[in-house]
């Protein structure tokens, strides 16, 4: 479903070249739940941004659902992103002027979905994250955990096949983090493919496959049983 071959990303200033990703390879199958770990600055977020087509890569090939992303125009990438990918950010990234209903509505509007269908999806997604009764509230009237649930509802509303989560529990206390994680697991069980970047080894272990990135390169892949503690298999330097 997602295939990255020799992906590299280089940031260049007048003085220095920085390789955020180097010869990065990854294959993701439909329905997988992958946790991406690694130290700060290792390239996790760069990988996620490239996977989500939020920034261009400088080398290699990337195909999503059989579409060669490198050959797409900016508008075509935006369209593909809107159709297939949902994002969950560490900082929630809700739009402060819009209430919960309107926040969840944003990706649907860009997809050109009719008003009645939008309404159905938004209400269903807010129901799914337990916030249907607060649809008219503004984000700042909610707790961090609730805001992240809205962000998840927004990601789900477009019925994406791919969910990219960047430290989705990073700004939450442990209780809230557990609730959000359970929600993500449920979404994965419902069929969505999830790639989650996290610092938290405990959360990472809940994903069946862990990918560790060090210095912009794949360090190893660890396979866990769902919610397992001990690894089933470890492939060093994969």
């Amino acid at each position: 479903m997602l295939s990255m071959q020799n992906i590299s990303k280089m940031y260049q200033t007048e003085m220095v070249q920085t390789h955020a990703l180097k010869d990065f390879n990854l294959e993701v199958d439909e329905g997988e739940f992958i946790a991406v770990t690694g130290p700060s600055g290792s390239g996790k977020t760069t990988f996620l941004n490239i996977a989500g087509m939020l920034e261009p890569f400088t080398g290699g090939t990337y195909s999503l659902d059989g579409v060669d992303v490198g050959s797409l125009s900016d508008n075509a990438r935006a369209d593909l992103r809107n159709q297939k990918i949902g994002f969950i950010f560490q900082g929630f990234n809700l739009i402060p002027d819009l209430n919960l209903y309107e926040n969840v509505e944003v990706p649907l509007r860009y997809r050109g979905i009719k008003s009645a269908e939008r309404k159905r999806r938004i209400e269903s997604c807010l129901e799914q994250v337990g916030l249907a009764s607060r649809a008219k509230h503004l984000p700042q009237q909610l707790s961090g955990g609730q805001q992240q649930r809205v962000a998840i509802a927004r990601a789900l509303a477009g019925e994406p096949r791919f969910l990219l989560a960047d430290e989705p529990t990073g700004n939450l206390d442990s209780l809230m983090a557990r609730q959000v994680m359970e929600l993500l697991e449920q979404i994965n069980r419902d069929g969505a493919t999830i790639i989650m970047v996290t610092h938290d080894p405990e959360l990472a272990r809940r994903a069946p496959r862990n990918v560790q990135i060090v210095d912009g390169q794949m360090a190893d892949i660890t396979l866990y049983q769902r919610n397992g503690v001990e690894p089933m298999q470890k492939i060093a330097g994969a």
């Binding site: 989500g52 939020l54 900016d74 508008n75 935006a78 369209d79 992103r81 809107n82 159709q83 994002f87 990234n93 739009i95 944003v106 990706p107 860009y110 997809r111 927004r154 477009g158």
Partner: peptide, 16 residues
């Protein structure tokens, strides 16, 4: 710009 970044991430094209 940050809000625009979010909108772009959620599928808004440059044209939109």
């Amino acid at each position: 710009a940050p809000e625009v970044g979010v909108r772009r991430a959620l599928g808004a094209s440059k044209t939109q």
